[in-house]
Design a protein around this nucleic acid. Structure first.
Length: 859
RNA sequence: GCGGGCGUGGCGAAACCGGUAGACGCAAGGGACUUAAAAUCCCUCGGGCGCGAGCCCGUGCGGGUUCGACCCCCGCCGCCCGCACCA
């Protein structure tokens, strides 16, 4: 045997080149074997990979390598989510172009990922910022436009008046722009939208079919889509209220409480409010105040319920003599339902707060179970549950549900001015996806604005609309807008001078279909190859962070439907299996001056169970703080490059997979890494000893059993993505192998067990596995070897040891033949000395024998 | 406020469908080897009592169901996450 110590630094690059030279991970679409598509969320090229990437890609690689060994034709690609604001910020600060910055980062990060030994098909690599990718995205936009999936409409946006740009909600902090610090304004801008809300019902319903998604994610999406069943009620208005047709449409999910109505309220930007404000200066002032408050989320949270009586009166739908005041109220949202509500204070907390402020009173109409209808009153806590109807005329005595039905069917049947007074309506919270961004570094929206022809799509033959490379980033705002010539263009329809759309697409668009592009990324004329898409999609296993539970995953689900509607695919759900992994967290450290100290500069000493930290360089004391997500601000990051340089990729991968369940956070510790590294060395040593062994007088049966048990268990654990358990099984097998070596087991059993162990750990530590595979003298590469089959006969023992309980407490064990009948097991158990003692002379009233499990004697 | 999840040794955790609680790893303590260190190997490692065989207690807390409960049911407590005026 060669070197004593395993040298990861030398072996890892060597095996990486062997895999790459043999094109082992290059996937062919015409390979006849069954397909398996495993995908990890592609990274943003921020500059360097972080430990979260290592964890994510280590998991995906285990699945890819395991499925390959299982005989699947595995697609495991990698790419770059490469558009986005940081590139423009870098351009502003460092005078490099966003393109140069992004591609330099990709270069670095590709090298880092390659040093991890991931079994990726690099020939399919894509970058979303490359015209060879975004030209197809532009084509998809045009197809979506044609198919009616795209809208251009006016919408309120967060406008940063200093940076001259629209900000996403996440970029507004305490009402101020995250970069400029300027107070953000609410502006109406004409924007491009994807009509995701058209699919709300289907996106909601199909969540039920995603049985390999985490329940949590499905729930989050369900809440986000926000389906509700209710009634659209048309209230007649007195006189000819301006801005209306004489009725006010209200959406409610509680028509049962209609007899508890005390007022109607509309949103400040409701047409009725706007019209009324024109003749009422005080109301105009109120509306203006609401609008100002409207932008800052914080203000909304704290704002008191406020309203303004318009003077308009509405008629109750069941009683024409019953009038209700119509308010403009700050808590009514224009973009949900109809922007108008009826207020039933006794059974809605907001409405109750409102009437209590304006002295409108309340009438309870639902009596809670167990309450007396005569005495039940509501003061400052609304009752929102189900109960029996009271004070509600023909509804009295009904349940809440019955009353809903009664009101709905009755009002549906009544008509006024040719329309039913009410209609059942399913409403959704989900709003259309605004994709316009006033940014340079994104996919240009391929349309042209012509004074004569209006908005004209760029002809497909003219694609791609390429970003200009000579943009100027010294002025804030959209560099496309500032560019001297880029936006000047001839109208494709009439040839007159026209203006290019200077908005680019939200970067979430880029990531909404990349998984489809991976199936045939070489195509030049089409976004997708139908045959390839049909073969590979849906993705069998998608792995990524929980932070994308809603937006990215919902947008992708919408996009898949869009692709199918426009003939680019044939399915609706892109991801059959989804797994959301936990974060990588680390202790934080603070120096004497209170500043954060990075782990690389800290030395930990542990004595008698107490851990103390010092600055490695000076010995100065360092305070150990709480465990947090690795972040630059707290400096508690560990650079994967450093770990790979000192321990190797296998050690990093192994540590990432051991200990914590993959969906939970994992605490990165130096001790843990060293433990993983010790195991790497131990495996190498054990294999070395096995190879050298040329005779043995001991028994190999126990080892064989242990190996086949591990084989069966690890297969199940990897299938279920329980990597931490698989790791524990492999440790057990290593322990068994070591014990067998000590017990002088015969070489055949040793070699078999060592071979199995290597194959089990190959998906996790592929380089070490290759090195050991070669040392064992096995043929070919372990990366190409078929997963071994376990021998079921070895999993069952001839004799089994059963615990014996007396009244549920364990008192001893009996060892019996595997197929012993209950009577003989019972006899053996009762004759145990420890059992007799525990019975204290009492007779056995009952003996429960669970075959192969346990014996319980009831005394 | 609404919705969801989780509470098991010093730590990360395991326990299949209600059947030996703590596998496996980390840390710690003791020992062997060594001039020494590193590396490696062996032993101990939930708490308490006992020389020992062994006994008692123990999965956030309080009840319940069961021959038997970390697991099921009821009621609390604590922590974490998501959404948040959605009518």
């Amino acid at each position: 045997m060669a070197a004593e110590r395993y040298n990861a630094k030398e072996t890892e690059p060597r095996w990486q080149s062997v895999w790459s030279e043999r094109e082992l991970f290059r996937t062919r679409n015409d390979d006849p074997r069954p397909t398996y598509y495993v995908l990890e969320m592609f990274p943003y090229p921020s500059g360097r990979i972080h430990m979260g990437h290592v964890r994510n890609y280590a998991m995906g690689d285990v699945v890819a390598r395991y499925k390959r060994a299982r005989g699947f034709n595995v697609l495991h690609p990698m790419g770059w989510d490469a558009f986005g604001l940081p590139a423009e910020n870098a351009a502003m600060q460092n005078k490099v172009s966003p393109k140069a910055w992004t591609y330099a980062n990709i270069e670095t990060m590709r090298g880092q990922l390659q040093s991890m030994g991931l079994s990726l098909d690099w020939s399919r690599e894509i970058a979303t910022c490359d015209p060879s990718y975004y030209r197809h995205q532009q084509r998809l936009f045009l197809d979506f436009l044609e198919a009616g999936l795209v809208d251009r409409k006016s919408a309120k946006v967060n406008w940063d008046p200093v940076d001259h740009t629209v900000l996403a909600n996440e970029q507004v902090i305490d009402g101020r722009g995250w970069r400029s610090g300027a107070l953000v304004e609410s502006r109406e801008l004409t924007q491009w939208f994807f009509r995701i809300s058209d699919f709300a019902a289907d996106l909601d319903a199909r969540l039920d079919t995603l049985d390999r998604w985490p329940e949590k994610v499905r729930l989050m999406q369900r809440n986000w889509i926000g389906r509700s069943e209710g009634l659209l009620v048309r209230f007649a208005l007195d006189g000819a209220a301006a801005g209306t047709d004489g009725t006010l449409e209200v959406y409610t999910t509680r028509p049962d409480t209609l007899f508890g109505a005390k007022f109607l309220a509309v949103a400040p930007d409701h047409p009725l409010a706007r019209a009324a404000a024109e003749t009422n200066p005080a109301l105009a002032t109120f509306v203006e105040e609401c609008r100002r408050l409207g932008t800052a989320q914080e203000a909304i949270d704290k704002a008191e319920k406020q309203g303004f009586d318009t003077g308009i009166r509405a008629r109750h739908p069941f009683d024409d003599s019953w009038t209700l005041p119509v308010y403009v109220a700050n808590f009514v949202l224009m973009d949900y339902g109809t922007g108008a509500i009826f207020g039933c204070p006794a059974h809605d907390q907001r409405d109750l707060d409102f009437v209590n402020k304006y002295g409108l009173g309340n009438v309870p109409v639902v009596c809670p179970p167990g309450q007396d209808a005569e005495t039940f009153v509501v003061t400052d806590e609304a009752f929102t549950g189900d109960g029996r109807m009271i004070n509600s005329r023909f509804l009295d005595g009904m349940t809440t549900d019955e009353a809903f039905e009664a009101v709905a069917s009755r009002l549906e049947g009544e008509h006024r001015a040719g329309r039913p007074v009410a209609e059942r309506k399913v409403n959704f919270r989900l709003r259309d996806w605004g994709i316009s961004r006033q940014r340079y570094w994104g996919c240009p929206i391929p349309v042209i604005h012509c004074a004569a022809c209006g908005t004209v799509p760029v002809p497909v033959a003219d694609l791609p609309v390429v970003l200009p490379e000579d943009a100027d980033f010294t002025v804030p705002g959209n560099a496309l807008e500032h560019h001297p010539t880029w936006k000047t263009v001839a109208c494709p329809r009439c040839g007159a001078a026209a203006r290019r759309e200077t908005d680019t697409m939200d970067t979430f668009v880029d990531s909404s279909w990349y998984f489809a592009r991976f199936t045939a990324p070489w195509l030049e004329d089409e976004p997708t190859d139908r045959a390839a898409v049909d073969r590979w999609l849906p993705v069998d296993q998608y792995i990524g962070g929980i932070e994308h539970a809603i937006l990215h995953l919902l947008y992708s689900r919408f996009f898949m439907r869009g692709l199918t509607r426009t003939g680019h695919a044939g399915i609706d759900e892109p991801f059959a299996g989804l797994f959301t992994q936990g974060m990588v967290v680390h202790e934080t450290y603070r120096g004497a001056d209170g500043g954060w100290v990075q782990p690389a500069d800290v030395a930990i000493v542990s004595e008698g169970g107490t851990r103390r930290a010092t600055l490695a360089a000076t010995g100065e004391a360092v305070a150990i703080g709480s465990i947090e997500k690795m972040s630059k601000s707290k400096r508690n990051v560990v650079d994967p490059d450093d770990i790979i340089a000192s321990y190797g990729a296998d050690t990093a991968r192994w540590f990432m997979l051991s200990d914590s369940p993959p969906e939970r956070d994992v605490i990165w510790t130096e001790e843990g890494v060293q433990g993983a590294w010790r195991f790497v060395q131990r495996v190498w040593r054990l294999v070395g000893e096995v190879v050298e062994r040329d005779g043995g007088t001991g028994d190999g049966a126990a080892l064989r059993r242990a190996a086949h048990k591990a084989l069966a268990a690890v297969g199940e654990d990897v299938e279920g993505l329980r990597f931490n358990r698989a790791v524990a099984r492999i440790y057990e097998l290593a322990n068994a192998l070591q014990a067998a070596l000590a017990a002088d087991a015969p070489p055949a059993a040793l070699r078999e067990a060592a071979g199995i162990m290597i194959q089990l750990l190959a998906p996790m530590m592929p380089h070490l596995a290759e090195e050991c595979w070669a040392a064992l003298g096995r043929d070919g590469l372990v990366a190409e070897a078929a997963w071994p089959a376990f021998d079921p006969a070895l999993l069952v023992e001839d004799e089994i040891t059963l615990p014996v309980q007396v009244n549920g407490k364990k008192r001893g064990d009996v060892t019996v033949p595997r197929d012993a009948d209950s009577a003989s097991v019972e006899a053996a158990a009762l004759s145990l000395e420890s059992v007799v003692r525990a019975m204290e002379g009492r007779p056995a009233r009952k003996v429960i024998v669970v075959p192969g499990r346990i014996v319980n004697v009831v005394a």
